[in-house]
């Protein structure tokens, strides 16, 4: 998952965003540019969050923007975004995120492989700490 993400340049690094909606759009941009998802995917993710709340912030500082499988998606993919300043998804600091992994899926078995690899990395607290300190793709490459 990380190997493909690095090879296909599916990552971006930013200072911060005024709103979570802008952050979601920026996080999806590399996937839109390489055709893995359609522009609609951004709106579908935003709609989901507006409907169900900031549940895509799965752990402190970690957000997994995604919508339904197969809608607005051409390819199963993962895309990383890292911000220096936290993006606020609600008034509660519990819903702040700096590390984003956009998930897109057309094939559940590949998606599940990606997801279990991701969960393995993110379950390691020292790895999360290092990912949160990363400011460039070189920093990420050094960790993987």
């Amino acid at each position: 998952m990380f190997k493909e993400l690095l090879e296909k340049k599916r990552y971006s690094f930013h200072d911060g965003f005024e709103s979570w909606e802008e952050a979601i759009a920026a996080a999806c941009k590399p996937l839109i540019e390489d055709g893995a998802v359609l522009e609609d995917y951004v709106d579908l993710i935003i709609k989901n969050v507006k409907e169900y709340g900031p549940y895509i912030v799965i752990a402190p500082d970690i957000c997994i923007p995604h919508a339904q499988e197969g809608r607005g998606v051409n390819e199963t993919a993962v895309c990383l975004m890292k911000t220096k300043k936290p993006v606020h998804f609600s008034d509660s600091p519990e819903h702040d995120a700096r590390l984003f992994f956009v998930l897109a899926s057309t094939d559940n078995s590949i998606h599940l492989q990606n997801l279990s690899e991701l969960v393995e990395y993110l379950s390691d607290e020292s790895m999360v700490k290092k990912l949160l300190e990363a400011e460039s793709v070189e920093d990420i490459k050094a960790l993987i």
């Binding site: 409907e51 169900y52 895509i56 899926s105 969960v119």
Partner: peptide, 15 residues
Amino acid sequence: ACGSGMGSSQIIKMK
């Protein structure tokens, strides 16, 4: 369960 059924619900299932 999660909003879409493909992200957090699958992570919860694994855990």
